[in-house]
């Protein structure tokens, strides 16, 4: 499906979800609780078959967090961006998609390391880049470190 067709399909199939678009992809806004059911349906439905999670990342929109899934299909080669907004800054938690795509193992480790977002159901959530004793989460906008020197 082309970008416009996919957008129309999503509007019809998910009437209670907000469908937008970015410059490159259609964008589906999903509630935190519905991540697994919606993504499972997107992966399995014969019209979409989003079986390839090529990018999973997060953005700190102080005070909210956005978790972003970029999906593509090896059958149809169409793309989709799925966005989840987490409002709890103190203790951000979201369901892990490791059960759907094994690639989420490393992606979610990295998001946890950099943003402190915890993934429920992840088999081995750990600080993958930094040491376990590291204070704070570097890609948060309010991250403070005495060692940062601006040139």
């Amino acid at each position: 499906m082309s970008k416009e067709e996919l957008k129309q399909y999503l509007e019809v199939t998910y009437p209670d979800l907000e469908v937008k678009e970015t410059v490159n992809f259609p964008l589906l806004l999903v509630n935190k609780e519905d991540v697994i059911p919606v993504l499972t349906k997107l992966k399995d439905a014969s019209e979409t078959r989003f079986n390839f999670l090529f990018c999973e990342t997060a953005v700190d929109r102080n005070p909210n967090f956005e978790v972003i899934y970029h999906l593509t299909s090896t059958y149809y080669h169409h793309d989709l961006e799925v966005k989840v907004i987490l409002e709890d800054r103190e203790n951000p938690v979201i369901d892990s998609v490791y059960g759907l795509w094994e690639a989420a193992d490393l992606y979610e480790d990295e998001i946890y390391d950099m943003f402190g977002i915890r993934f429920k159901g992840h088999p081995n959530l750990r600080r993958i880049m930094l040491t376990d004793e590291w204070n704070g989460f570097p890609l948060r906008k309010d991250y403070q470190d005495d060692k940062i020197i601006s040139l």
């Binding site: 090529f54 990018c55 953005v59 700190d60 970029h70 094994e102 690639a103 490393l106 890609l139």
Partner: peptide, 27 residues
């Protein structure tokens, strides 16, 4: 290789994410 840019209208990116091939292939 994917370059994901979130721009806020200034001359610096708000967030820039590199989806690098080796990171996924490591799995």
């Amino acid at each position: 290789l994917g370059v994901y840019i979130v721009a806020d209208g200034s001359n610096k990116p708000y967030r820039m994410k590199f989806r690098t091939p080796s990171f996924s292939n490591l799995g």
